[in-house]
């Protein structure tokens, strides 16, 4: 039912856990930005490959899970790419397909755009997976705190984070109970069972909120969670490696700026 693995669980035991969160975020976000600004597919593809190596090789994330994650964007990308292939046009025609009296033509420019978008999405998703699989949310909160984001936003994010796990536990328990009682045996029943699950989840969530209110009042919550921060310095080798990596990616984007496949 909850078919995705919560990536946070994997992140908490990954091989790069000890690397400073600021460094990992800088590398991930830097690579995403270089990918999205790159005018040719070379740099995003290099980013995708290097990020996959970093995540599977160094952070020791199982390759099977990584492959399953890559399948998530497929249906969205597939539908959108079809539209882009046949609608955007420009350049020389490569292939004409007559459908119902209409001629849809695939041109060099639209094929190049489709290839570029595919590689950018692949590079971007791999960089996002790198952040997701190597940086636990708790570390991201402390970076958000250092960046001086509004306290209200960080507090609400932390409370939501905590409650996500409480509610996932509840929904798994309800779902198991429903499956044992043939709740999902037909389509009609599964609609009803799903709605019952969601409704009860809401009621349970609300009751948890009321309980938490009492608990927080009892502990004199005054509108801000104090986080204990240990002052950590990023190692010079770490900074040098990250800068070197990002410069190499940016270099690829600049060198191959006019490269295109068709």
């Amino acid at each position: 039912m909850i078919d995705e693995h919560l990536l946070d669980d994997l992140a908490l035991q990954n091989g790069l856990l000890e690397v400073d969160a600021r460094l990992k975020l800088a590398v991930g976000i830097g690579a995403i930005l270089i990918g999205v600004f790159s005018p040719s597919p070379i740099a995003p593809l290099a980013i995708a490959a290097s990020m996959a190596v970093l995540t599977i090789g160094f952070a020791r994330i199982p390759a099977r899970i990584y492959a399953a994650l890559l399948a998530i964007p497929v249906s969205f990308v597939f539908m959108s790419i079809i539209v882009i292939l046949f609608m955007t046009g420009g350049g020389e025609p490569l292939w004409d397909i007559p459908i119902l009296g209409h001629t849809f033509s695939l041109t060099t420019d639209s094929a190049n755009l489709a290839v570029l978008l595919l590689s950018r999405t692949l590079g971007g998703m791999c960089s996002l997976f790198f952040i997701a699989l190597t940086t636990p949310m708790v570390d991201i909160f402390s970076v958000m705190n250092r960046l001086r984001l509004p306290d209200e936003f960080i507090d609400l994010s932390m409370l939501i984070y905590r409650n996500i796990f409480v509610l996932i536990g509840e929904s798994i328990a309800i779902h198991n109970a429903q499956v044992m009682r043939n709740g999902y045996s037909t389509f009609r029943r599964s609609i009803d069972a799903f709605a019952m699950l969601a409704g009860m989840l809401f009621v349970r969530a609300w009751e948890k909120g009321e309980e938490m209110l009492v608990a927080m009042d009892a502990r004199c919550y005054d509108g801000k969670f104090q986080m204990i921060e240990e002052e950590r310095r990023i190692s010079a080798t770490g900074i040098a490696t990250a800068t070197g990596y990002l410069c190499a990616c940016a270099g690829l984007a600049v060198i191959f700026r006019s490269f295109s496949l068709f």
Binding site: L159, F194, A205, G209
Partner: peptide, 17 residues
């Protein structure tokens, strides 16, 4: 505040089902 927090968690869990 806690009610908003559970509401946010509820939206997240609902959207991951």
């Amino acid at each position: 505040i806690p009610l908003l927090a559970v509401a946010g968690a509820f939206v997240f869990v609902l959207s991951s089902l």
